[in-house]
Simulated scan of single mutants.
Amino acid sequence: MRQILVFSSAYYPAVGGAEIALAEIMRRTSDEYVYTMLTHRMNRNLSPHEFVHGVEVWRLGWGTKFDRLFVFPLLAFWKARKLLRRRHFDLMWAMMVSYASIGAYFCKLMTTSPPLLLTLQEGDPEQHLDRGKLGLLGFWWKRLVHGADYIQAISSYLADRAVSLGARGRVVIVPNGVDVEHFSRPSDVSVAQRYRAFFQITPEQRVVVTASRLVPKNAVDVIIRAIALLPQQYRLLIMGDGPQRPALEILAKNLQIEERISFVGTLTHAELPDALHVGSVFVRPSRSEGLGNAFLESMAAGLPVVATKIGGIADFLTDGHTGLVVSVDDPRDVAQKIERLFNDKKLYQSIQDNGLALVKQHYSWDSIAEQMQRVFTEASLQHPQV
């Protein structure tokens, strides 16, 4: 069996888009590949070495922010160097332009190493990618994109960015997937009733949902302003948490609609489908997006989506067919599109059906894993860039 050395700044028990993608792909390709993971030890209670769902995981560091920022890339390089001397690896796989990926880059510079596959998953604004962390993020984007032997981007937007930064290896697009069965299963009626009772949602109310980290790029403030423009029967459930939550709560209060806005907080992957089914429309007018798994998960759950056509969203959002497109930072446009979906049942049903068909055909994890197997095979045959 072929062996892949994986570099990721976060992994289980952390759960985000990148971590879910790693887990789903590795699980579905474990009959062909043996994976060894190098990741940061997020806290001291986590074991420095264990097997998680068949994957050997080395957690490096001492569980502090300082070692993640300043020491972890060197620890990842040092551990990888030792493993590369002891075992034969067919490929190094770096997840995102991250602290872990810097360790993989050092391996290419200082050791005889296998080819480097770089996965691009980022959804941050261009300005942050270019100038974030005092310009260091832009520096490492250029170094890693230029040094990778093969690049897999989850959207056309990220693939184009890699090419514009001087990628020398092949660049292919393989998106993240969706657990279609998990999100499309019938809602647990008792759970939905508990949500509705807890948030005091009445039968005549029209419920809009959003799910995201509460940060400026996800434009939850725009959704709140849109709800303020709609009649009283419209409610908003906000799933997720983040640094912007206090400011968003103040905004809802200042607009005098705090009784119509419910902050659900962070939900587990298992809890999310039932929570989504409480709503009828999913809205996220993003200011930037690498792909946007939350949109695809909502489509799988049968919810029409309202979104901007920013970044990777353009790969799956066709206005009037798989969702409704809104302008960036335009609460009035968002309000109009929400109301249109609730009032036009034929359009609602059409977008609902088309969205579900899209994720089933193009975004199931089984299909994505098959595509990634081809990527691994092609990438492992590349002559390492110097």
Rank of each mutant, 00 (worst) to 15 (best):
D188W: 00
Q371R: 15
R86C: 11
P231V: 09
A369N: 10
S30R: 14
A21I: 00
L120G: 07
C107Q: 10
N254Y: 08
A148C: 11
Y157H: 15
E378W: 10
D149K: 02
L303Q: 04
A153G: 08
G279V: 01
S113R: 13
K133S: 11
K346S: 13
L144S: 06
T318E: 14
I313V: 15
K108I: 04
D366Y: 01
S350Q: 14
H277S: 15
A369I: 04
G63S: 09
R225W: 04
W93R: 09
G265L: 07
V208C: 04
R194W: 09
G147V: 04
R332I: 03
L381E: 15
G320R: 05
M299H: 03
H40K: 06
T111K: 10
Y99A: 13
M26Q: 11
P216C: 06
V174C: 05
Y35K: 01
K345L: 12
V189R: 11
R196Q: 15
S298A: 15
L60D: 07
G355M: 01
K309T: 06
Q121D: 09
H146P: 01
F263K: 05
A369T: 10
R41W: 07
L91W: 10
K345N: 08
A211W: 02
E258I: 09
I368M: 00
V207C: 07
F66M: 11
F263T: 06
G292C: 03
Q200D: 13
V208G: 03
Q244K: 08
A379K: 06
K217Y: 03
